[in-house]
Amino acid sequence: MSHAIAQPPPELTREHALALLRDMLLVRRFEEKTVELYSAGKIRGFLHLYIGEEAVAAGAMRALSPDDRIVATYREHGQALLRGISAGAVMAEMFGRANGCSRGRGGSMHLFDAARRFYGGYAIVGGGLPVAVGLALADRLLQRSCITACFFGDGAVAEGEFHESLNLAALWSLPVLFLCENNYYAMGTALERHQAEPDIALKAAAYRMRSEVVDGMDVLAVEEATRRAARQVRESHSPVLLELRTYRFRAHSMYDPDLYRSKEEIERWRQRCPIKKFVERLREWDWLTDASYAELEAEIGGVVQRAVAEAEAGPLEPVADLLTDTCTPRDRPHDVPVAPQRASPP
């Protein structure tokens, strides 16, 4: 756990620090609004909140390049918003509207955006990892320089696909950055109740993969570690695993009565709230005044409000289009990039 320091790190600018704060606040306020809307029946299905974990998406997304590919989980509102999918498009998706980022076909758990190289939220735990490995394989074969960042939770570590994917990515030297968001619970089952070896980063050694444990409640630590790891992946053409230790303050989903952990435990983690701690540091550095914080909150409040309005106003896809996009229309060329010409395989 990082301790507040009186001076900001030398390479950090106030502008960048405020951008990170804004990122985390956007996710927090957006999700708080979705809770209201869920209670009001505007959002249905499952809603998995990221509240408490914002430093992970905020730090990681700032460290990745726009060319990099993102594979995420069903708890991906933060990743989606901070990758640049508009709050309106994400909210509209959760409303099931045709102006949603997946045209209302995916909902909260399946946000996609081809233009932002956001390859989706995957709701079968571990199911995104092989896809990330394949994306990286394509990039390797086509000699592209981008990497694939693959988010997953500690629960996925128990899946065979975690081990298979780490093995294959390491064996074939594929540019995957595995980002394990360890929030200590696989739904309701605590890490030490589902892992014989609860040190997740350690497992990478079995695949001769570099790994690191990161304080996932500290946005600067996450950004710095992700930047370093992404550079390693890019330069070494081989995968790296980061274990980002974090905590969700809310229940697993809106259906979860949260009976499996104590109020004291939750409260202890709340004291480490990534936004609260970061705000304290910014104040210590004299980078944030009450007025500027209030201004930021107001600006984000506006973004969220406009997102709701956009979702409310969004059209419903006609039921006549129910089967659309089950298969790719045969009269339309599908969007597959053409490989560069090479004399021979690398």
């Binding site: 590919r69 990892l129 092989p130 896809v131 394949g134 994306l135 394989l137 696909e161 093995n167």
Partner: peptide
Amino acid sequence: TFVGAGIGAALGG
């Protein structure tokens, strides 16, 4: 994983 990697590679072009 290798079927999933096939899916990813197809998505990747």
